[in-house]
Simulated scan of single mutants.
Amino acid sequence: MKQLFIVLCALLNLFSTYRSFAQDSVVTKLAKANVSSFLPEGNSFSGLGWTKIMDKVNGSNDVLIGEDHFTNEIPYFTSALASQVKFDNFFCEIDPFTAGILQQKIKNLSDIELQKYVNRYGNTFSFYAFTSEFALLKQLAKSNTQIHGTDQIMVVGDRVICNELQKITKNKKAKDIYTTIENNSKIYFDNFLKDQSKPFYLFTDDFEKNIEKLSLLELSPKEGQIIAALKQSVKIYKSRNHHLRIQLMKNQLMEKYSDWAGKRNLFKYGANHLAKGESLMEVYDIGNLVNNIDDSKYKNSLHIMILSTSGTQASPFQGFPEEKIDENSSILKTLKPITRAIDGNQWHCFDMLPLRKALNEGKISISDIKLSRIIKGYDLLVIIPKVTASKIADH
């Protein structure tokens, strides 16, 4: 009896594997029928895939690019879009205060002064510490696209923010505390780069004591807002509360709603954040919020996922080694039924709508929930054949 049970289990497992493989083959076949290729050309692209992307981009006010971070090719792709379409607003994965600081510096400093500023503070700019990403930010700012950030303050972002607060505060005690935070943030970050067991200053009791001292002082409304944001950022980092972070990002987006409602808007975040429905991390994120707002106005937002199957990507911090793209990573494993349809070394664009229609109508069955979320959440999937790691500007 026991042997029969073992045989039945083995047969069921074999049947399940065969069924999964058969369904993957159907997905691959459908993906192959809805893919087009394109190639970089100068500062843009050429080919049927690019034509299709631009047709979709031109048909939507809200374009959302869900990316894999730390490569040169994705800001290049975004730059090419922004060169052909004038966007009123650019939303990105950085806190709103740093976003405002960077836009102001790009617009008001000379090229030499700006480079000096980047050399001094660039490694506090989150993703925009990287040369290719900062070049994209410059392009957008100089074309009068408004830069908006929606995120908590980066673990080393206290330094650049407190440097600016020193300039605007009218309270001498506050100025001294801002200076202390800026200096200590740099010291702690330099120590972290040498020894990753060392904490960031933002995580220390001393930082929290200084923030509490600031809370008791008479300060401007803007200073009060930033101090509250620093407190909340510490709370998010220490609690590792992903949902709270997403709540903050959506709240910040809606605070600026009057600035972007009815305008042409470009969003660029990690792919986890920009699906139309449930995100890849099982919450309803910015992509879902924008999709619902557009849907309420009888419009469609355009959601593009972009990543690569090979190459290298950078580490978040200067001096850390770049990493090879892992073809067996969770996301690339999930996408294999689609990426198997790739033929050649060109860039490929998959139209996900036929896949979504087949899934919704029950013509295909997908057991991988993440793949289902991608198909339902993204309109286009762009696969880059090979990427190169971003470089942080020399300091």
Rank of each mutant, 00 (worst) to 15 (best):
F125N: 14
I112E: 15
T131M: 08
Q318S: 10
I306A: 09
Y201K: 03
A275S: 11
N171G: 14
D24L: 05
I338L: 14
Q152P: 04
H303S: 08
A129E: 12
S329Y: 05
T180E: 13
E93N: 01
R373V: 05
E322H: 10
L253G: 01
K167P: 01
Q3W: 06
D394P: 07
K175G: 12
L219R: 10
T17S: 12
I227N: 13
D62F: 13
H273P: 02
D176K: 05
L48N: 07
Q318E: 14
K391W: 00
L4A: 13
Q139V: 14
S239C: 00
L381N: 01
P96G: 12
G122W: 01
F15V: 12
I375K: 13
I74K: 04
Y284K: 05
Y237D: 11
K167H: 00
E218F: 15
K386V: 11
Q247L: 06
L102E: 14
D351R: 11
I106W: 11
S60K: 01
H395M: 06
Q84M: 14
T98F: 01
T145R: 05
F97T: 06
K167Q: 07
R245I: 09
K386I: 08
P96Q: 09
A229M: 03
Y378A: 08
S372W: 03
H348P: 12
T17Y: 11
H348I: 12
S330D: 12
P354Y: 00
F127S: 10
T124Q: 07
A33W: 01
L307Q: 09
D55Y: 12
D285Q: 00
A99W: 03
K107L: 10
S279T: 07
L244N: 10
A341E: 07
L381C: 08
M54D: 07
S301E: 05
D379K: 10
M281T: 15
Q104Y: 02
I147K: 00
I161D: 11
F15Q: 13
T169M: 06
D285P: 05
Y284E: 00
D88Q: 06
F15N: 12
D326F: 14
L289V: 11
R264C: 01
I153S: 01
N163L: 05
S279A: 11
R159F: 00
P321F: 15
Y257V: 15
M281F: 14
L48I: 07
F267K: 04
G287S: 14
Q252A: 04
K138M: 03
S258Q: 06
N360I: 10
L253D: 04
P96H: 04
K32L: 10
W50F: 02
E212V: 06
E278Q: 14
L302E: 09
F5Q: 11
